[in-house]
Amino acid sequence: MVLRLLSKQGTSTPEFRLAIIAVVVFLAMAALSPDRFLSSQNIISMAFQFPEFAILALAMTITMMTGGIDLSVVGVANLTAVISALILVNFAGADATGAVALLWLFAALGVAVCVGALAGLFNGILVARLGLPPILATLGSGLVFTGIAVAMTGGSAVMGFPDVVAWIGNAQLLLVPVPLVIFVLLAAALHVILTKTSFGLKATMYGANPLAALFAAIDINKLLIRVYVISGVLSSVAGMVVMSRANSAKADYGSSYLLLAVLIAVLGGVNPYGGYGRVMGVVLAVLSMQFLSSGLNMLQVSNFARELIWGALLIFVMVVNTTDWSRFGKARSGH
C-alpha cells in the first residue's frame, strides 16, 4: 500500500495491538467457558448484539478523523426511528402484510435515511458555516433531535409494526444475522470512502492540519458538511436496526451507546484530534468489546462489571498507545 496513512508500520500500529487484544480476549473467554462461549448459539447471539452500536462507532469514527466528534448520533438514531415508526404505525399498521407492508417499510427506511442526512446537514452547517466547536454543536443538536422525538411521541414508545419490520434486526441470511450483514457492508463502504476516494483522503488530511487544508485550497465547508451528513446517515441506519430489534421506537433508547461509540472509536486507534483512524481498528475494537462482554456474561458477571471493564480497557489501551516505550528502554540502558 503506497498511500499509507502514517509511516507507522506492521507491529507498531494500534491496529496490530488491537488484533492481539481481540485474539487474547477471544481465547481467554473460550478457555474459561469453552462449551458455552464457542457454541453456535452464543456466536450468533453476539453477531446480533454488536452491529447497532458498532454502526454508531463508525459514525463517530468519520467525524473524529476530521478532529471533530458527533455527540448527536444517538439522538439522530432515535429521531429517525421514531419518525419511521410513526409512518409504519399510522400508514401500514400492525396487520399489514405482503407488498403493502414491504412498500411502507421501504418508505419508512427511505424517510429515515433522509432525516438522518438532514440532521447531519444541520450539524455540518453548524460546524462548517457557523464555526461552532463540533463538541458543542452536536451536544446542542443532539438535545434538539432527542427533543423533537420526545415532542412527537410525548416520551412514550411507538409500537405496533407490521411483522416484516422485525426482519432487519432478527433474520439471518444464510445463517448470517442481517444486522451483521448491514454492519459489514457499511464498514467496508466507510473503509473504501476513507482510503480510496478523494473525499476520504481530504477528510483525513483536514484532520491532520485544518489550516494547511485551507492553504491547500481544499473546500473545507463542503468537506465537513459531507462528513457530518455521512455520520447522520450511519446513525439513521443504526436507528433502524435498533427499532427492528426492539420492535418499537422511543426517544431515549440506547442512551449509553453514545459514550460506548466514542469509546470504541478511540479504542480502535482513531485519533480524537483528527488525522488518523482506520475502519479495521474500529472493527477490532468492536469485536474485543463484544467478546469481552459476552464472555463475562457467560461467567455470570453482571452488566455493570462490563462497563467497568470497558472503561478500564479504554484507559489501558490509551496508556499503552501514548507511552513512549523507547524512552524507558533508553533510561534503563543509560543507568
Binding site: L259, V262, L263, V266, P272, V301, S302, F304, A305, R306, E307, L308, I309, W310, G311, A312, L314, I315, M318
Partner: peptide, 17 residues
C-alpha cells in the same frame, strides 16, 4: 476527555458491581 470517559465507566461499573 478520554480519561474521564473511561473513568466514568469504571467508577460507575465498580459502584454497581
Amino acid at each position: 476527555l478520554i480519561v474521564t470517559l473511561g473513568t466514568l465507566s469504571v467508577f460507575r461499573g465498580f459502584l454497581l458491581t
